[in-house]
């Protein structure tokens, strides 16, 4: 909520900061998990998307190009390693700390 020229308006935080001249400092975290899941990375990404969407029913869990999944600012990217395993990179901003750490924990505990 921003007061501007004697009236009030709703603005998203990025725009409000840029109009007020505040330099936001974006914090991002990335952690990597290694999985043993043969097949193409896109297939692994599909399985992970189904797992996450099953747990987070109120959220939009999107499968995107390049074997990636996005939920708000959380990005999950599947890559094949040299020894034919999968690296899963989970990355999120500080604003989505709870969501990001929840998804990381979910994927770390998968299959245990």
């Amino acid at each position: 909520l921003v007061m501007k020229e004697n009236s009030m308006c709703l603005m998203d935080v990025d725009r409000a900061c840029s109009e007020a001249g505040v330099n936001r400092h974006q914090i991002r975290f990335t952690s990597t998990i290694t999985l043993d899941d043969p097949g193409p990375p896109s297939r692994t990404a599909e399985k992970l998307q189904q797992l996450i969407a099953g747990r987070l029913k109120d959220w939009s869990v999107q499968l995107t190009e390049g074997s990636s999944i996005s939920v708000e600012s959380v990005l999950i990217k599947v890559e094949t390693t040299e020894d034919d395993q999968k690296n899963v990179l989970v990355s999120w901003t500080n604003q989505d700390e709870e969501l990001g750490s929840y998804i990381l924990e979910l994927l770390q505990n998968m299959g245990r």
Binding site: R24, H25, Q26, I27, T30, T32, S101, E105
Partner: peptide
């Protein structure tokens, strides 16, 4: 305007 922490799975450290 940004800080990016790449932390290999150690949640307590992160």
């Amino acid at each position: 305007h940004s800080t990016h922490i790449y932390c290999e799975g150690d949640e307590q450290l992160r």
